[in-house]
Amino acid sequence: MLKLALAAAISMMFVLEPAAAATKHKGHAAATKRVKAKRTNLAKVIADDNRKRMVRRIEMVHGKRRVVYQRVRRAAPAVAMLSAGDIAGLSRTHDPLDLRSNVAYVLDQQSSEVLFEKNAAVALPIASITKLMTGLLVVEARQDLEEVLTITEADVDRHKFTSSRLPVGARMTRGNLLHIALMSSENRAAAALGRNYPGGINAFVDAMNAKARELGMNDTHYVDSSGLSSQNISSARDLAKLVKVAHQEPLLRQYTTDPNYVVQASGRALQYHNTNYLVASPDWNIGLQKTGFINEAGRCLVMQAMIQGRNVIMVFLDSKGKQSRTADAGRMRRWLEALKPASLPASMSGTAAAGVPVTVSAAVPASVSSAATAPVVQ
């Protein structure tokens, strides 16, 4: 009996061993299949990522359209950058309205009475507020708004590397370029306007600075027509002068306050929207406005608006937070609505009591022309 049991056990071993081997083989094959699937999925992810990193651009070569794919670098993670105002210590200035803007300036447009003033004499980078001077020069030069201009490589931003919906080779009227430069802060449009001024961009920048001197904007200096350079600087007091003059031009009032607009570029319709959503708000009566942003300048806003039957000019520079400049405008409007008709002399400092103009400032140099130089997005 013992011999029979031993023989049976040995025979079972020979039967089970192939089965176990077969099972092991199947398991190995399944694992191999899973590894191959993971490799295939990884390859697809890499390919998709590479495609996302390619930018499709249309260029005109010898009169023919050519599609070009250009590989772009992945942007570095966003980090908080100090603005020129922060570096100058303006963020330590407190005001009774608790504004998020390091600089604020409000005056009665008719009487020129200063109603609110915070660091208004400090010259800071102004970003795309620059385009308001660009628009004023184009209008005052009476250049043909129906002339068709072409976007060239010279209009591409090589300073901040901002994007644009206008490809190199796009053709558009000067009027439409002016419209989207003022309404949507289109940088290539502003560059093309300056480049197509008599004498080119250098002559245009000279004319911008000459106009600033003519208007008594002594804290102001321009180096380009778009505002992408942090060397475009001005003070809030100076910008209020610019807004007052620009408001006299009907075309600038219209273009800066249109909520949206469709333009034709090389036969293609492009819809643009205003960078300031307040222009579409029924709570506001805005006659002219312009926004701006680069890291060195912070969020900027200039506006002409009617509040309680009074035309006022507002300037907010170096504001912190995406919606902070418009929120500051709202705080200022509510304060102005509470003001009594007769106010004290503008030179007085005080609290935000009704009828009392406010002047607050930090002990900083009158001009701060350089600050953080990290890449920015306009």
Results as ranks from 00 to 15, higher is better:
residue 10 I to Q: 12
residue 92 R to N: 10
residue 73 R to N: 15
residue 131 K to L: 04
residue 345 P to M: 06
residue 363 A to P: 01
residue 301 L to F: 03
residue 162 T to S: 15
residue 230 S to Y: 15
residue 154 A to H: 09
residue 227 G to A: 07
residue 190 A to E: 09
residue 7 A to W: 05
residue 185 S to G: 05
residue 25 H to D: 15
residue 271 Q to M: 02
residue 75 A to M: 09
residue 67 V to M: 06
residue 159 H to M: 12
residue 172 M to D: 02
residue 77 P to E: 13
residue 255 Y to S: 02
residue 307 I to S: 01
residue 133 M to G: 00
residue 153 E to I: 03
residue 203 A to I: 08
residue 146 E to H: 15
residue 109 Q to K: 11
residue 373 T to V: 10
residue 68 V to F: 10
residue 72 V to L: 13
residue 227 G to Q: 03
residue 106 V to Q: 00
residue 104 A to H: 00
residue 313 I to V: 15
residue 44 K to V: 12
residue 125 P to M: 05
residue 323 Q to R: 14
residue 17 E to F: 15
residue 43 A to W: 11
residue 34 R to A: 14
residue 108 D to M: 05
residue 242 L to G: 01
residue 183 M to F: 00
residue 321 G to I: 07
residue 289 Q to S: 07
residue 237 R to S: 00
residue 347 S to W: 14
residue 127 A to H: 11
residue 137 L to C: 08
residue 21 A to G: 14
residue 125 P to H: 07
residue 283 D to R: 08
residue 157 D to P: 00
residue 369 S to T: 13
residue 145 L to T: 08
residue 367 S to R: 15
residue 366 A to N: 07
residue 217 M to I: 06
residue 204 F to G: 02
residue 127 A to M: 13
residue 260 N to L: 08
residue 148 V to D: 08
residue 36 K to Y: 13
residue 246 A to N: 01
residue 108 D to H: 03
residue 112 S to V: 00
residue 269 A to M: 02
residue 137 L to Q: 02
residue 220 T to M: 02
residue 210 A to N: 12
residue 302 V to Y: 01
residue 149 L to P: 00
residue 75 A to L: 11
residue 16 L to R: 10
residue 109 Q to H: 06
residue 49 D to K: 08
residue 195 R to T: 04
residue 147 E to A: 14
residue 31 A to K: 13
residue 296 E to A: 14
residue 23 T to E: 14
residue 94 H to M: 09
residue 261 Y to F: 12
residue 330 G to S: 12
residue 183 M to G: 00
residue 132 L to R: 01
residue 96 P to M: 03
residue 185 S to H: 10
